[in-house]
Design a protein around this nucleic acid. Structure first.
Lengths: 341, 341
DNA sequence: GACGCTTGATATAACGATATACCAAGATTG
DNA sequence: CAATCTTGGTATATCGTTATATCAAGCGTC
């Protein structure tokens, strides 16, 4: 049923070796036989068995992306960017979603190893244990971690300047006159959040603002909404929130609306990511922008270099985020309009 | 570097055949040697080469999902559902995104064939040509199409009762007293949209309402917003819109807000999908709900049956959608409150 | 003690492609 | 014209597993 190289070769009246060379465009083959083989292949709907090919040649042009959450529009954009870059170089990207579950992630990564994917883009799940990093390192899988850093420098990394970005975000609110600024979406011990929280704390400290408030929540709108309602009930003096992501921020804005208040004038909200929704939210969300598509391309580029030479020293790229002022940040009530510092 | 079965076998002092049997839990092996082999395997960080295994055994527990758009929260939920169902049966799901591009889809599907994935879940890209269906059929790939039907009955299908759902949606608006109802997100010739549009048209016709207006737009918020602005400029008499999806509907609501009007009282909007955003949008969106997670599970279940017996006659499952009334639909201005029929 | 039966393990041939080495025939050279 | 090169092609071992057949040893049975 499934045609193999042997069938193609027989149909074209050549050896499998010759057929193989034609299919790969390798070796020295006369134009006449080349055409004959190609015709036979098309005729039989031949598709080569990549397992056999990759086993023998040691090459695999399928790259894996192990990500913590597919359902996030930011991540989806990253995937698009990475995919485009890889495709332009003749590779292909398949995605496995761990949903931040370490057991599922383990299964996913083992599947990548089992199929000897050509390389691996990876956003490690929270609480990923060392054994998992060891596994990849032990198998010599060309790996680039993304966003969440770890693995003790054994892997390349592409990420965001989180610390600096949250200094900027918090600083922006402070500049506007806010003193009680909370951080929404914190708590987890993982690298990214601690970097971000550190940036937030640094400004709260340097500018001598009120005591930091870190409020936990997951990364989606509904959680952001609930967390904001909670926060407001417990800390009514908070006039501004820095959010761990746009999803949370948009949820928070929805909560503020539900409370009969207005984001930007009653409570200021600043997000992170600049997802498509941010610009068309009501009101449009002030946020820290990084281009996820470009980030994805960058990520893929680093991976390609690693794949081409697995002996290079590991590298690390951090991309800065940029403040995009829209309408959810403003002066707190009771602070007079004055020149910005 | 990469350990193979031979190394494990040698370390345990047995043959590769024995080691293989231990790793698979097959054959008759004494408890003592079983333990010795397992220990050796763990010791060497052994992970079996799935390519070789699947080549020899003809089995592959990695399932592919070829989808038209990862970045859609509805689809993301479907993926989660399918993934959970498959995992519970010891399979694993990897996702390739075609972004509705037929060339990219072709490459993706060929990759699935090359690696001989155990089965295939597939939302065909718009304008998929027959040759692509033929390709899968020719290779005997166990395939279930999802949402978009085609392939002339050669594949199992899981989908939504689109026609009936859009009769319900349009009927709901008609019941409220609307006469000028537009369809937002139409035009493409593909199955799903024509089914939906047919349902809409049927009601417009049966109830003797104004002439149908079909307005084209892509499936995201920004496009929905632009389309709604456009529609309003050209057809100011429209008092209600049925949308092809929640993303479009939410975009449309944003547009209505921008125009200084209120969704639900000035212009009614009804969506489709009931994504998470629908419930927390401002105002909350009336929509036709199907549970994407359950849909994903169902899809996976059908695929598993197909994988287990590829000679079964093909089946088709259509899941109904359900009206969820929230706040974006109401009586048109100027129509008196009256008993619902 | 020859016979069958069970248990635990092994030797070996696939699976489908590709890398390597090799070869025949014609063309080129000194 | 013998020696060398080029061209176009093939035979074969190999990648890492697993399925199949086979086998030796122990054990009971008549």
């Amino acid at each position: 049923m499934k045609p193999k190289l042997e069938n193609v070769a027989k149909a074209a009246g050549v050896s499998t070796a010759t057929a193989s060379q034609v299919m790969r465009g390798a070796g020295r083959i006369s134009e006449a036989t080349r055409k004959r083989v190609l015709a036979a292949a098309k005729d039989l709907h031949y598709v080569r068995d990549g397992r056999a090919a990759s086993m023998r040649s040691g090459e695999n042009r399928e790259i894996g992306f192990a990500i913590h959450q597919i359902a996030n529009p930011f991540n989806a954009e990253v995937i698009s960017g990475a995919s485009d870059m890889l495709e332009s170089e003749g590779y292909l990207l398949s995605v496995l979603d761990s949903r931040d579950d370490v057991a599922r992630q383990r299964r996913n990564l083992e599947a990548f190893i089992q199929s000897s994917r050509g390389g691996l883009l990876w956003v490690p799940a929270e609480d990923t244990d060392d054994a998992t990093y060891d596994l990849l390192a032990a198998h010599g899988m060309p790996t680039v971690t993304f966003l969440r850093r770890s693995g003790r420098g054994r892997f390349d990394h592409v990420g965001i300047e989180n610390h600096e970005a949250f200094r900027t975000a918090t600083g922006h609110l402070a500049d506007l006159g806010h003193r009680h600024i909370a951080y929404l979406g914190g708590s987890a011990q993982f690298g990214v959040r601690t970097e971000r929280i550190a940036g937030y704390r640094a400004i709260m400290d340097e500018r001598d603002l009120a005591a930091p408030i870190i409020w936990d929540t997951r990364d989606d709108k509904l959680s952001g909404l609930e967390a904001m309602l909670d926060l407001y009930a417990r800390h009514p003096d908070v006039t501004a929130v820095v959010c761990n992501g746009d999803m949370v921020a948009i949820g928070a804005c929805a909560a503020i609306n539900m409370l009969g208040l207005t984001p930007g004038s009653d409570i200021s909200v600043i997000g992170f990511d600049d997802i498509q929704d941010a610009a068309i939210a009501a009101p449009p969300l002030t946020t820290m922008a990084v281009s996820p598509y470009d980030l994805g391309r960058k990520l893929a580029k680093v991976a390609l270099e690693r794949i081409r030479d697995n002996d290079m020293p590991t590298s690390s790229v951090l991309v800065p985020a940029e403040l995009v002022e829209r309408e959810t940040t403003g002066r707190p009530r009771g602070v007079n309009r004055q020149k910005r510092p």
